[in-house]
Simulated assay, not measured.
Amino acid sequence: MLLSFLITAAHAAPVSEGKAEAHLPWYLEHEAFVLLAFVILIAIAFKPAKKGLLGALDARIARIRAELDEAERLRAEAAAMSKDAAAKYEAAVRDAAAIVAAAKDEAQRLRAKAEKDLAETIARRETQATDRIGQAEAQAIAEVRGRAVDVAVAAARDLATDALQGPAASRVIDKTIDELGKSAA
């Protein structure tokens, strides 16, 4: 309302034709009214625009803050996962070292056991071979004695048969055979 009054007053000012235009005071100039109208328009539009603009800025600030919080949470989670992975890696390295040490100990134990078993087997086989050799020797001696006895008996029989004839020869031969059998045993 004030604006329309000022505009009307500015147009109603007498302008003389042919004379140079009179200078109006600055507040009655057209440009002043346009400037004043623009300022009033901005002032009226500022209040609703302010809410929208500040709301948009607040929403953007909240979104950025949420993104920063999310980034901080992800950074903390990544740090925790990195720490956990490092701990698992160290545990795996320790476990691997323990497994290798245990395997070396087991290999040494198995080697010592195998050497001991081999030594026992060799000793047992040597004993068996010695026993077999002893048995073979005893058997060979027994066979030689048996053959010697058989040869001696046959020789004695032949001699006795040639030297003795008749029933007395049979008794001597039987007695000799009995004595040879007893001495061979």
Score class of each variant (00 low, 15 high):
Met1Cys: 03
Leu2Lys: 03
Leu2His: 05
Leu2Pro: 03
Leu3Glu: 15
Leu6Arg: 14
Leu6Glu: 12
Leu6Trp: 14
Ala9Gly: 05
Ala9Trp: 10
Ala10Asn: 12
Ala10Phe: 04
His11Asp: 10
Ala12Phe: 07
Ala13Lys: 14
Ala13Thr: 15
Glu17Ile: 14
Glu17Ser: 08
Glu21Ser: 11
Ala22Val: 15
His23Asn: 12
Leu24Ala: 12
Pro25Cys: 03
Pro25Asn: 04
Pro25Val: 10
Tyr27Ser: 05
Glu29His: 14
Glu29Tyr: 04
Glu29Arg: 15
Glu29Cys: 07
His30Lys: 12
Ala32Ser: 10
Ala32Lys: 09
Ala32Val: 01
Phe33Met: 11
Val34Pro: 01
Leu35Pro: 02
Phe38Ser: 09
Val39Ser: 06
Val39Pro: 01
Ile40Leu: 13
Ile40Asn: 04
Leu41Thr: 10
Phe46Ile: 05
Lys47Asp: 04
Pro48Val: 04
Lys50Ser: 05
Gly52Ile: 09
Gly52Arg: 11
Leu53Tyr: 11
Leu53Phe: 11
Leu53Pro: 01
Gly55Trp: 02
Ala56Leu: 08
Arg63Cys: 01
Asp69Glu: 15
Asp69Phe: 09
Asp69Lys: 15
Ala71Gly: 09
Arg73Gly: 07
Leu74Val: 11
Arg75Met: 08
Ala78Gly: 01
Ala78Gln: 11
Ala79Val: 09
Asp84Thr: 03
Ala85His: 03
Ala85Trp: 02
Ala86Leu: 03
Ala86Thr: 00
Tyr89Cys: 00
Glu90Trp: 00
Glu90Val: 02
Ala91Phe: 02
Ala91Gly: 01
Ala91Tyr: 00
Val93Lys: 04
Arg94Asn: 01
Arg94Glu: 00
Ala98Leu: 00
Ala98Asp: 01
Val100Gln: 11
Ala101Tyr: 02
Ala101Arg: 13
Ala102Glu: 08
Ala103Tyr: 04
Lys104Ser: 05
Glu106Cys: 02
Gln108Ile: 05
Leu110Pro: 00
Lys113Ala: 08
Lys116Gln: 06
Asp117Arg: 07
Asp117Leu: 11
Leu118Phe: 04
Glu120Pro: 00
Arg125Gln: 13
Arg125Glu: 12
Ala129Val: 03
Thr130Pro: 02
Ile133Val: 09
Ile133Leu: 15
Gln135Phe: 13
Ala136Phe: 14
Glu137Pro: 00
Ala138Ile: 09
Gln139Thr: 13
Gln139Cys: 03
Ala140Met: 13
Glu143Ile: 14
Val144Ile: 13
Arg145His: 11
Arg145Glu: 12
Gly146Ile: 04
Arg147Asn: 09
Asp150Gly: 05
Asp150Phe: 01
Val151Arg: 02
Ala152Asp: 07
Arg157Ala: 08
Arg157Asn: 12
Arg157Lys: 10
Arg157Leu: 06
Leu159Val: 05
Leu159Gly: 04
Leu159Ile: 07
Leu159Ser: 06
Ala160His: 12
Ala160Ile: 13
Ala163Cys: 09
Ala163Asn: 10
Ala163Thr: 12
Ala163Glu: 12
Leu164Lys: 09
Gly166Gln: 11
Gly166Glu: 08
Pro167Ser: 13
Pro167Phe: 09
Ala168Val: 12
Ser170Arg: 07
Arg171Val: 07
Val172Lys: 10
Ile173Phe: 08
Ile173Asp: 14
Asp174Leu: 13
Asp174Glu: 15
Asp174Ser: 14
Lys175Tyr: 09
Lys175His: 11
Thr176Tyr: 09
Ile177Pro: 03
Asp178Cys: 05
Gly181Asp: 15
